[in-house]
C-alpha cells in the first residue's frame, strides 16, 4: 500500500538505485556534450528563440490530452525542439524543463532525473532530429513538407522515447509487472500519444515557419527557401529600425 500523487514523468523508486545512478551519469555526460556543441548554434538571434521554445515546451507539457478512457498523454517535445533549435540546444531545452518540473513542481522524481532526461531529452530529441534529417529534402521543399516531417518525427520520437523506460525497467526495474506487459503497454499507449505529439509539433512548426522561416533550424542553409516570410511586415509608424 502506498499513496502517490499524480506524476507525468517517472517517479523515484520505479527502477533501482544503481540503474538510476547509471542513467544519471549517462544524462550528465551527454548534457555536457550538448552544452559544448550548443554554443555554435546560439547567437543573439537564436538564443532568445531557444529560451522561448523551452518555456513553450514547459507550458504545453502541462496539457494532458485524453487518449483512451482513463488515460492521457502530453507532449514530450523532442522533435519540436530539434526542428526549431537543433538537437544540441534542444536537448538542453528539454533538460531544463524536466529540471524545473522536478524541483519546483514535484513532477518526476529527483533520483529519476537521469532516466527522465535520458528518455525525453536525449532519446526523444535525437530520435526526432534523426527522422527530420532523413526527411530533410521533403521538409525543405515546401511548407507542407516541413509540417509533414514535423508530424512524423514527433510520432517516432514519442514511441522511441517510451522504449527508454522499457530499457531502464529491463535493466533495473523494481518489479510489479512483467517486461513483456510493460513493453506492449508502453508502445501501444505511446503510439496513441504520438499522434497528439505529431499534431502539436506540426501545428507549432507550421506556425513558426509561416512567420519566421529563418528561425527554423532544420531549414538553415536553404539558399532560396520556398517558404517565404508571409507575415504582414507592417513597419510601425516611427518604429525602430
Amino acid at each position: 500500500m502506498v499513496t502517490m500523487v499524480t506524476a507525468m514523468h517517472m517517479s523515484d523508486g520505479l527502477v533501482n538505485a544503481p540503474t538510476s545512478l547509471v542513467f544519471g551519469a549517462v544524462a550528465l555526460v551527454v548534457l555536457v556534450l550538448c552544452l559544448v556543441r550548443a554554443r555554435a548554434d546560439l547567437d543573439e538571434r537564436t538564443a532568445p528563440m531557444a529560451g522561448l521554445v523551452t518555456a513553450f515546451v514547459f507550458a504545453v507539457q502541462m496539457i494532458n490530452f485524453p487518449i483512451l478512457p482513463g488515460a492521457s498523454g502530453h507532449l514530450l517535445g523532442g522533435a519540436l525542439v530539434a526542428i526549431l533549435v537543433g538537437p544540441w540546444v534542444g536537448t538542453v531545452c528539454i533538460a531544463i524543463v524536466l529540471l524545473v518540473q522536478a524541483l519546483l513542481f514535484a513532477d518526476g522524481g529527483l533520483t529519476a532525473l537521469g532516466t527522465n532526461i535520458t528518455n525525453m531529452a536525449i532519446i526523444g530529441v535525437f530520435t526526432g532530429y534523426g527522422v527530420a534529417l532523413l526527411l530533410r529534402r521533403v521538409a525543405r521543399r515546401s511548407r507542407g513538407g516541413l509540417v509533414a516531417t514535423a508530424f512524423v518525427a514527433a510520432f517516432v520520437n514519442t514511441v522511441v522515447a517510451s522504449l527508454g523506460f522499457v530499457l531502464e525497467y529491463a535493466v533495473g526495474g523494481s518489479g510489479g509487472a512483467s517486461l513483456g506487459t510493460v513493453f506492449a503497454l508502453m508502445v501501444g499507449l505511446h503510439a496513441l500519444i504520438g499522434i497528439g505529439e505529431g499534431v502539436i509539433t506540426a501545428a507549432t512548426v507550421g506556425a513558426v515557419v509561416a512567420v519566421r522561416p529563418d528561425l527554423v533550424y532544420l531549414l538553415r542553409g536553404t539558399a532560396t527557401p520556398l517558404v517565404r516570410r508571409s507575415a504582414p511586415s507592417t513597419p510601425t509608424a516611427g518604429g525602430a529600425a
Binding site: 502506498v2 502517490m4 517517479s11 523515484d12 523508486g13 502541462m62 522524481g109
Partner: peptide, 27 residues
C-alpha cells in the same frame, strides 16, 4: 490524502517526491 493502490503494480514502488511540499507541488 491521495490515492491508494491495491494489487501488484510498478507504481507501488514509487516513493513520495522529495519536493512534494514545494509551494508549487503538483502544479
Amino acid at each position: 490524502g491521495g490515492e491508494h493502490l491495491d494489487g501488484t503494480c510498478i507504481a507501488q514502488n514509487a516513493g513520495e517526491h522529495a519536493a512534494a511540499h514545494s509551494p508549487l507541488a503538483d502544479y
